[in-house]
Computed example of a mutant assay.
Amino acid sequence: MNGKRMAGAIAGGLVAGLGITALMIAGERKSGKPSELADLERTSAHRLGVHPVPPADRLPDAAEQAVIQGGHLLLSAAAGAVFATTVEEDAGVIPSGMAFGLAFYAAMHWIAGPLLGVKKPEWQADAGTIGMHAANHVAFGLATAAGARLAARA
């Protein structure tokens, strides 16, 4: 395994994760409503028996935001590592990034989240939400693939 490629894929995943995090936090501030990540974290905390869980309509404070975004970035880094170990090194950035992003989206939003009971099934979402989630994950996959490619060539 190419260690540079692994590091690049993880870095690409983190960069994309940070971008999505920034969009989520900006959306919270604009709308005054907690992000989907906050909802996921609170549902997970409730299912794990963590008390107290903040009210669903309250914006996360700094400590809760650190937990939410820290978990999101850990998942982004882990996904980057999965990309590096499962995608051939000579795969094109655009096709491999798009395919990986869509596969990651399907795994998280269509399978894992609903099975774990931490989010409603994606098939119950409206078309705009599905499109936004798919686009975010494609961008994530492209950034991860690009990071892997750039680092492998360095």
Rank of each mutant, 00 (worst) to 15 (best):
G17A: 13
V67D: 02
V82P: 00
P52L: 06
Q65Y: 13
F83Y: 15
M6D: 03
L73V: 03
A79L: 04
K33C: 09
A38F: 00
T43Q: 08
Q65M: 15
S31K: 14
M24W: 03
I10A: 05
H51D: 15
V82N: 01
A26C: 04
G49N: 10
A77K: 01
I20V: 06
R42M: 02
I20M: 14
E36A: 11
A11N: 05
M24F: 10
S35L: 12
A45F: 03
R47I: 11
A7G: 03
L48D: 13
L75A: 10
K30W: 13
G32C: 13
A22D: 04
G8K: 03
L48T: 00
R58K: 14
A22R: 12
G70M: 10
A38D: 14
L40P: 01
G12E: 03
A7F: 08
G71M: 05
G32L: 11
G13I: 02
G13S: 02
A63N: 09
S35E: 02
T21M: 12
G8A: 03
G13E: 06
D61M: 08
K33H: 10
I10R: 02
G80W: 07
L23P: 01
I68C: 00
I20A: 12
G19W: 00
H46D: 10
G8S: 07
G70R: 06
Q65F: 10
G8N: 09
A22I: 14
